[in-house]
Design a binder for these strands. Structure first.
Lengths: 86, 86, 86, 86
DNA sequence: CGGACAAGTTTGCCAC
DNA sequence: GTGGCAAACTTGTCCG
């Protein structure tokens, strides 16, 4: 009886599994390299005198749509108005 | 010859070391419990309809002094003005 | 229409928000105090001649070992589930 | 006096800031594409009948095992240093 | 919506 | 003592 349909261990072949693992691991490596590149750019920004923390926030804001950013800012203002900023 | 002053392994006694480890581990546990309590309060806030993400931001703002919050907001506004918010 | 369920801004009352903020800030303070206590114990350990870096490692290892037990059980269960030996 | 070194707001020029933001956003996009590719491979693995959760575990374990080698060396060095056996 | 995974922030350590 | 580096912990996001 075939394993297919039983959520089994080795539905196809060992080679298939090895291939999948290799591909994922390779992609993970690529992604990590890009993350390192991003880190480098932030270091460069810092060297140029920019405020990295704020820069991250700006990047994050641009990733959302403008409406959402403005709404969250508005909520924040309301909360701060209620509890005060001390 | 005494071990003291040699940055040695067992400067005093095993009991002393065990006591230190126990105390630290107990404090770590307590700290974790408080972290869990904090998490619970945020869950409660969410249930009450508050925006948890913004709430975290407000707590964080209040932990800093007002001047710093305003300065970071100002920098953010400048950056966004330069690159735009799209 | 009620704001509840819409990720609203001021769902209940100012008092509720103030209460939540106070509780979180109080818990944050408690947690910080415990962190300071932990720091103190490490200082004491150092005074007693222990190597703090190694001591941190020991604490960390013991915590991981404890976590590892459940972890290993989870892995075993997962693998056994796949193998089909319930 | 120059702003550089003061965590300044606009240390160089608008073009510089725009360039930095563009580069980061481009890298973020690349990284997201790779993440999507990884996702696709997992979907393919699932289609082939593999248990994705277990597969993730295997990938994770292999990464940890690799890291563990250096880690163990570091621990050994640390402990040996304390024992005084250089 | 809850739990796994990734990102970001903070904290402690070390070199200067 | 300070500032950069590394690691721990917290927070946010995404998938099931």
């Amino acid at each position: 009886m075939s394993d297919i349909g039983h959520n089994s261990i080795a539905p196809d072949s060992n080679e298939r599994l090895i291939s999948l693992v290799d591909r994922i691991e390779r992609l993970n490596d690529e992604r990590k390299n890009i993350s390192d590149d991003i880190k480098d750019v932030y270091v460069e920004a810092k060297s140029a005198g920019y405020d990295v923390k704020v820069l991250r926030r700006v990047i994050s804001d641009r990733a959302k749509d403008a409406a959402e950013v403005e709404e969250q800012d508005a909520i924040r203002d309301m909360y701060l108005k209620v509890v005060g900023l001390y």
